[in-house]
């Protein structure tokens, strides 16, 4: 029975994991410090007590953790593995790219890898270059892997469930700066949604802003600032990046004629490029050149004021959006 409870994002993930372990007896949950301590962010708190040896701590061995997930998944388990920072998944990329992604395809579906990797990414003040990256584009370049990126408590709850129920290897990318935020009303116990889809966060006429992850909050602040000048925009938060709801983007851009994509990941080779390319390929007539805003292609420095100079801030998003909305073709005479 669905019920509304007050949870922060971390609590929502915890509730989703508890439900997975409760309702799907084939799930196992593990990672570094995940079992007894309940996770460095406290996300799996109480779960080992409740579910015993289906929840456990692992050595600092990401390759073994993810490889074991591929193997256990092919024998009927449904592993949920926490990789503490997405930066650490890089030491085990082989298990994701060469192993998990290939299992179903190469075996013609006779072997599958229904595993979920829960991780988190992004910069936070003072974080070092090896704890700050946004790497979704690496995963989105790998057909065979599903990827989602929740931001709100409700999405964190829903997406974890959809990911675990999904029959393919799925990466849920969370953001540590959101875990301990204010509690919000989250409906738990509802139907497990299929993967895919987006969230329409604002309705507007003058532009379409496509975004994902924690930077969505800045995008919404920026869009709300422009409202004072009578400028409005559609804001589509793409909680699922694979599958990606290109048709929702197209539908909106056809109406507004203007597109801005914002992500925290590096601009060059970021998934924003793919979003823009799909719109351009569709032949949709645009009133302004489409734009992308992301990390100003750099390593990420630890000093907060240096990082802030490289990662899009609310003010920069607002001015970029103003430019997209105000752009006119030379010679239009308007």
């Amino acid at each position: 029975m669905p019920e509304a409870v007050k949870l922060n994002v971390g609590g929502a993930v915890n509730a989703a994991l508890a439900r997975c372990l409760e309702e799907m007896p084939e799930t196992i949950l593990y990672g570094e410090d995940v079992g007894k301590p309940g996770g460095v962010f406290g996300i799996s708190r109480g779960l080992q007590k409740r579910f015993g040896d289906r929840v456990f701590d692992t050595p600092i061995s990401e390759t073994a953790m993810l490889g074991a997930a591929v193997g256990a998944a092919s024998f009927g388990r449904r592993p949920i593995v926490e990789i503490m920072w997405i930066d650490f998944s890089l030491v085990a990329l082989d298990q994701i790219v060469n192993q998990a992604a290939n299992v179903r395809y190469v075996s013609e579906g006779r072997t599958t890898a229904p595993l979920t990797i829960r991780t988190q990414q992004g910069n936070s003040p003072g974080a070092c270059a090896q704890h700050s990256q946004n790497l979704e584009a690496l995963l989105l370049h790998i057909p065979g892997i599903r990827v989602c990126m929740p931001r709100t408590g409700q999405d964190a709850y829903d997406l974890v469930l959809s990911a675990v129920a999904c029959e393919d290897p799925t990466v849920v990318i969370e953001n540590r700066t959101l875990y301990a935020g204010a509690k919000e009303e989250v409906t738990i116990g509802g139907e497990i949604l299929p993967i895919g889809g987006h969230r329409r966060r604002r309705d507007g006429d003058h532009a379409t802003v496509v975004t994902w992850g924690s930077i969505t909050t800045r995008v919404l602040d920026a869009v709300d600032r422009l409202a004072a000048d009578g400028l409005t925009a559609d804001v589509l938060e793409m909680v699922w990046l694979n599958p990606f709801d290109h048709s929702a983007v197209l539908e909106s851009v056809r109406r507004t004629g203007r597109l801005l994509v914002v992500h925290e990941a590096a601009r060059t080779g970021g998934f924003g490029a793919e979003v823009v390319a799909r719109v351009v390929e569709s032949g949709t007539v645009l009133l302004a050149p489409p734009r992308r805003l992301g990390l100003n292609d750099s390593r990420i420095p630890s000093a907060p004021q240096l990082a802030a100079a490289l990662i899009p801030q609310t003010e920069q998003i607002a001015s970029e959006l103003r430019e997209v909305i105000g752009w006119t073709h030379a010679g239009d005479g308007s």
Binding site: G126, A127, C128, A129, H131, P301, S302, A303, L306
Partner: peptide, 12 residues
Amino acid sequence: TGVNGGRGGSAH
């Protein structure tokens, strides 16, 4: 005046 001008920080 930090050894890496703030690029490294405490951990790097």
